[in-house]
């Protein structure tokens, strides 16, 4: 007769604290693994360090051509905005756009990379909590991000000299909020992309269209018809670019932007919550339908 399945003396079910420790451990493992994976591609690091500047500078040169160095911003679209110089007006959101794009390519792009190399299934069945795949990836990215920001700031200071007028508390608060929002959106998109075979192309359209066109990174959204301005306001980055300009160019305080902060915090919470819900749903779907390994 077979012995009954052992219950007495078995290890206790993991509690809440054990789960948290496992979550942290999984996230750190994924972060370490991500750094190793990308350190294989030596030019990637250099590309992302100088890439943002190479994307920012042509817009400043366009403004140099149409406005002229040292000339103030003018015209009907800038009248009520209160910005005098165009360099800061362009550089602040374009830095944010490029850094956001590195987040999207780093986090959402991982699905594609892992699919190509056939390791997505392996990673997802290894970790206890699938969402650590994204959290760990975000942790690894945040380490690199400081270097990208420093490199971009150094290069723009040398060649295009933005006219910063910074409120440090508001500036740091907006940047932290921006990162939380951009990681939240990357998480949400990554979850959605479990179902889409060429997710990277979709992510490129979504992020670049939203960031570079709809959010008004390089022009005031007053250029749009009223209905499109309302649509643009649905996306957090439209608010964030505006807040970053106000904190870093006009030295506005957190108090001056209370409403903006409240709106963006609410949007960020919604994106993170939706990311967790969608990830569970999409994972169940891909496992049930056997789509996980297909791309």
């Amino acid at each position: 007769m077979f012995a009954p399945y052992k219950t007495a003396g078995a290890a206790a079910e993991p509690g809440f604290v054990d789960d948290i420790l496992s979550y942290v451990r999984d996230s750190l493992t994924i972060a370490k693994y991500s750094i190793w994976t990308f350190s294989r591609y030596r030019s990637w690091f250099l590309n992302l360090a100088i890439g943002p500047f190479l994307a920012i500078a042509p817009f400043v040169f366009l403004a140099d051509t149409l406005v002229g160095q040292g000339n103030p911003l003018g015209g009907s679209y800038f009248d009520d905005l209160g910005y005098s110089g165009y360099v800061g007006f362009l550089v602040v959101p374009l830095m944010a756009v490029n850094l956001s794009n590195t987040v999207f390519s780093w986090i959402s792009g991982l699905i594609r990379q892992e699919q190509y190399t056939g390791t997505l299934e392996r990673v997802l069945v290894t970790v206890q909590f699938p969402s650590t795949l994204f959290i760990g990836r975000a942790l690894a990215h945040s380490l690199y991000m400081f270097i990208f920001v420093a490199a971009t700031l150094l290069l723009v200071s040398i060649w295009v000299r933005p006219d910063f007028n910074i409120n440090p508390v508001a500036g740091i608060s907006v940047v932290v909020l921006h990162l939380l929002a951009v990681y939240g959106m990357a998480f949400l998109l990554s979850s959605a992309f479990l179902r889409i075979t060429d997710s990277w192309a979709v992510q490129t359209v979504l992020t670049r269209t939203l960031l570079a066109i709809l959010a008004g990174a390089t022009f005031p959204i007053t250029l749009f018809p009223t209905w499109l301005q309302i649509v643009a306001r649905v996306f957090p980055f439209t608010w964030i670019f505006d807040m970053e300009r106000r904190a870093l160019l006009r030295s506005e305080t957190v108090g001056d932007m209370t409403l903006d902060f409240a709106v963006v915090i609410a949007m960020t919470v919604v994106m993170w919550a939706a990311g967790f819900v969608l990830l569970n749903r999409e994972l169940k779907h891909t496992r049930r339908t056997g789509m996980l390994g297909r791309f």
Binding site: L62, G75, Y86, T204, T209, I213, T218, F219
Partner: peptide
């Protein structure tokens, strides 16, 4: 890759649009 293929056909529009809009705003027309 259907989405990528569609994007390949229209992506030049996405790239030129921000430049056109920026130039329009900066030269006020």
């Amino acid at each position: 890759y259907t989405n990528k293929f569609r994007l390949e056909l229209i992506d030049h529009v996405f790239i030129v649009l921000p430049v056109i809009l920026t130039a329009w705003a900066f030269s006020d027309g």
